[in-house]
């Protein structure tokens, strides 16, 4: 399951994109997004994001939105 970045939370710092081993994270306007076809789900971006805004499966996604 590829990671996703929660747009509302992302501050656009780009830290995650420097951590990604397969360069799956790209800049989209002011935030960053993950290319689902490239992501190998290593979660490196998740552990490094200062805003904790990268998430895994749909369940996790929902949890964060409602929080």
């Amino acid at each position: 399951m590829p990671r996703q970045i929660l747009e509302e939370n992302c501050i656009g710092c780009g830290t995650c994109s420097t951590a990604c081993p397969v360069d799956a994270i790209y800049k989209k306007d002011t935030v960053y997004q993950i290319n689902a076809n490239e992501c190998v789900d290593c979660q490196a971006c998740q552990s490094i994001c200062p805003e904790a805004c990268t998430v895994g499966g749909p369940g996790e996604f929902k949890e964060l939105v409602t929080k």
Binding site: A19, C20, P21, V22, V40, C42, Q43, A44, Q46, S47
Partner: peptide, 12 residues
Amino acid sequence: MTAVRKGAPYDG
């Protein structure tokens, strides 16, 4: 190899 090095330690 670069990717193997870079990804670790994954989620921590």
